[in-house]
Design a protein around this nucleic acid. Structure first.
Lengths: 142, 142
DNA sequence: CTTTAGGGTCTCAAATTAAGACTAGGTCTT
DNA sequence: AAGACCTAGTCTTAATTTGAGACCCTAAAG
């Protein structure tokens, strides 16, 4: 299930079925996965369960508000579970559910792609930006 | 490279390297891929090249502004190319570059996961929401 | 008594996205 | 010939999201 044909096919089916959010599992699910912080949070939970503050330390540039919300969404979707320990300053641990762990694999594929093609993308960006601001003397001679 | 061990490893490395956007290929790339419309657009271009309006018809709920921007970003990143045909009302065709096609495969993995687990996620959401609003007669009898 | 820690919530401001009017040039209709 | 319409965008103006950081409560530490 990794050739090119089945690939086109699945994209084809998807489109045929309609892209309507709500009606569409893919959009529905990808909207969450593709969320700015969700992937990062999943990755942070991949190795082991983590507490709220710990997650915040790992991802310093997420606001508590968004971290809370991301975690809630993960919990709501059944990808993570929340465990409260009634210690003195109560601590809360988040851990991936089996469902949550199952998304790690496809996600890793994407991450691998990102790592492998980062250079190409960076170069493409550089070229594009250069072309937009750089070629003051390079139009085709009309 | 699809077991669980290497998987955890890659996530581990990623985190060790730091999650800083900019410094981090993964965040850098995933921020774009994970963008609300990028995945959809890639999928729309997977089968064949498409014109602007055609894309807009396929994804009716994207604004022209965002479609334009998504397409520009794709072009900038070298994932798609833009071809202008000087027909009467000029038409513009977008097509995936080889790099763009290469992302389809990992993306398909995620899409497959979404399709397979949509039911489980929906059910988890239902449970979660029920638990939050539903148990009006279920507190412990004080 | 003040500070620190943990896990959040809340408010306000900044940034992003959606909706849709408007453009330019040419064709089609009447 | 006047007016309507097409494509591919751009621009302006809302509405929605996100970010930054103050603030809450409890209990131990200093």
């Amino acid at each position: 299930m990794s050739d090119d044909a089945p690939l086109s096919t699945s994209f084809g089916d998807w489109q045929t079925a309609g892209f309507d959010a709500g009606a569409c599992p893919v959009r529905n699910v990808l909207d969450r996965i593709g969320d700015k912080w969700t992937t990062l949070t999943l990755a942070a939970l991949a190795a082991r369960p983590r507490r709220f503050s710990e997650l915040h330390r790992i991802m310093p540039d997420i606001s508590k508000r968004m971290l809370t919300q991301t975690l809630r969404d993960l919990e709501r979707d059944g990808l993570a579970t929340r465990h409260v320990f009634p210690t003195k300053p109560p601590s809360v641990e988040y851990r991936l559910s089996p469902l949550g762990r199952s998304v790690l694999h496809p996600l890793a594929g994407l991450i691998g792609w990102a790592e492998q093609n980062f250079a190409a993308i960076t170069e493409a960006r550089r070229r594009y930006d250069t072309m937009r601001t750089g070629p003051p003397a390079e139009e085709e001679a009309t």
